[in-house]
Amino acid sequence: MSLVEEAHEQGKAEAAGRTMAGFAATVGGVPLVLAHVIGLVLLSRIGWRVWRGAGLAYAALAVAAASIVGIGVGQLLFGGNLFYTAPVFVP
């Protein structure tokens, strides 16, 4: 959704001598990656204590499953436009 925001606000930003480049990555991508890394680290530590090597696989599977569910929910909430990229306008 932040990609749409970035695309819509770019014209105003350019008029003000600024840019919206990187907004989507900062607002959407960075926190998402951090959440996945933190979840994987925490689940890996717990999995290692309980099941050793298999626990690491369980941790990776749990993070992957949660990510897939999150993508599905995001697609439903945003009407299939979760990965929307604005078309390039060429005058």
Rank of each mutant, 00 (worst) to 15 (best):
V63S: 00
A57V: 14
H36W: 07
Q10A: 11
P87E: 15
G39N: 07
M1G: 11
A64E: 03
L42A: 13
A62L: 14
V27S: 03
P87F: 04
V30N: 01
S44F: 03
E14P: 03
L40P: 00
P31T: 07
L77Y: 05
A66N: 08
L34V: 14
T26P: 00
A57M: 11
A7V: 07
I38A: 15
G80R: 13
V69Y: 02
S67Q: 12
L40D: 02
A65T: 15
Q10P: 00
P87T: 11
G79H: 15
G72N: 07
A15Y: 01
V63T: 13
E9Q: 09
L43Q: 01
F78G: 04
E14H: 04
I38T: 13
V50A: 02
G53L: 14
A7M: 04
A54C: 04
H8N: 13
M1D: 07
Q10W: 02
A13R: 09
V41E: 09
V41H: 05
A35L: 15
L32V: 13
A15R: 09
H8Y: 05
W48R: 12
L77I: 15
R18V: 11
A64M: 12
V4N: 01
G39W: 05
A54F: 09
G47D: 01
A25P: 00
E9M: 04
L32T: 15
A16C: 02
P87N: 12
A25V: 11
A54L: 12
A7D: 11
T19N: 02
S44N: 07
R49W: 09
P31K: 12
L76S: 09
G70M: 00
V27D: 00
E14F: 01
G80I: 12
L42E: 07
V73I: 15
M20Y: 08
V33A: 13
I71L: 13
R45M: 14
G55M: 03
I68D: 01
L61N: 04
W51E: 03
P87V: 06
I71P: 00
G47C: 01
F83I: 14
R52Y: 02
A21Q: 06
Q75C: 08
V88E: 13
A35F: 13
F78Q: 10
A7N: 05
G22E: 06
A65Y: 02
M1Q: 04
A16F: 03
R45L: 15
L32W: 05
G53P: 01
G53D: 12
S44V: 11
G74S: 09
N81G: 02
T85Y: 12
H8G: 11
S67H: 15
G70A: 08
Q75D: 10
A59D: 00
Y84K: 10
L76T: 08
L32R: 13
P87Y: 07
G53W: 14
L42S: 07
G11V: 06
K12N: 03
A64K: 02
I46F: 05
G29W: 01
G72I: 11
W51K: 10
T85R: 15
